[in-house]
Nucleic acid binder design. Sequence first.
DNA 1: CGGATATTTGACGAATCTCAATAGGCGTGG
DNA 2: CCACGCCTATTGAGATTCGTCAAATATCCG
Lengths: 197, 197
Amino acid sequence: MAPGRLAISEGDPATDLFNVVRGSVKLYKLLPDGRRQVTGFLFPGDFLGIAFNDTYAYSAEAIESVQLCRFPRGKLESLLIELPKLERRLLGEAANELAAAQDQMLLLGRKTAQERVASFIVSLSRKAEKRKKPASPIALPMSRTDIADYLGLTTETVSRTLTQLRQAGLIATNRRNQVEILNSRGLNDLIDGGAGD
Amino acid sequence: MAPGRLAISEGDPATDLFNVVRGSVKLYKLLPDGRRQVTGFLFPGDFLGIAFNDTYAYSAEAIESVQLCRFPRGKLESLLIELPKLERRLLGEAANELAAAQDQMLLLGRKTAQERVASFIVSLSRKAEKRKKPASPIALPMSRTDIADYLGLTTETVSRTLTQLRQAGLIATNRRNQVEILNSRGLNDLIDGGAGD
DNA sequence: CGGATATTTGACGAATCTCAATAGGCGTGG
DNA sequence: CCACGCCTATTGAGATTCGTCAAATATCCG
């Protein structure tokens, strides 16, 4: 699936469940006037479309070229009955998403721009590690606009904040949209106001 | 359980699952320096402690005097095996929480103070309806501080915004922490920038 | 190499926060 | 039943962070 291609659309009937095989995906919700909130980024191994309601709660769009593994909802139902372990697995996935959502609420409601960007970088780094990838440098396949809409900021503020972090010697930015973590300790201190306040 | 009493604490082993029988509960996360994000309010019928991980992701505190129905985790496991329907029910609850969390991310990341407060009032009104209670007037059992920490604002901004909505003729405030919705249409227009922008 | 797009940087303004003071509500005790 | 005191909510004035608008620079790709 090509970059920019829509996988699912908010409000559509939730007919399928997907698993990301390759590439990355962004999830988002829109307001009528175009304001956008990116609610998450998905990477290989993540599930897409965990909606036990009738319709999807958000839209999903490919960032990089993406390969998805599709489970039609109907077959899923019977699969769940055959494989109770799968249901438990999905339940676990949902719980993880829920915990991530709560962290994100804390970020959006109470963190400063600097704390948000630092949190974002560290969070991507940790996710990369979980996928057995190096914790640094980490790729930022999404645009500044996507990051801004994820962090509740503007692209300008994201850009300025990255510059600050770079000037503070905490990170370095590669030309290939990669971020290298130079001072992991310092970055972690920033995340929840432990220092730098 | 008396108001202010802690039901579960962030990071504690997730030993129990609760159902709210009577009263209301707030869920929240804290930053080390005391900043707080309220991630949700629970009312009768809602589940508390849906954490399939080892530990709770947030703390929970009684707002009004609360009565909880407790399911020890161990018994729950066997219950789930006996009653697959319960597991499905929990899955549904988790999905609903997830959808609510995404709405809240949109609110925290992209809505103005006025839109946040209007959204909050309407959302409480809808929840009240689901519990077969009148859609107006609605009780606000939580303090202004709780509301502010839920909406990512300060108590002062919440207070000022309520005053604005009152002066605009959209709501009336009872002395008993109740809000009456005078102009439902107007309030709904505010929620996602449909008008008033 | 050149045009289009994305990112960075700059100057200014606005929404919200902070700090401070006032007013209102509620319980206790006279 | 009313007065006092405490706590919460409201209101006000000024500060600050972040957003807006605009321009410059970098990157991508044909």
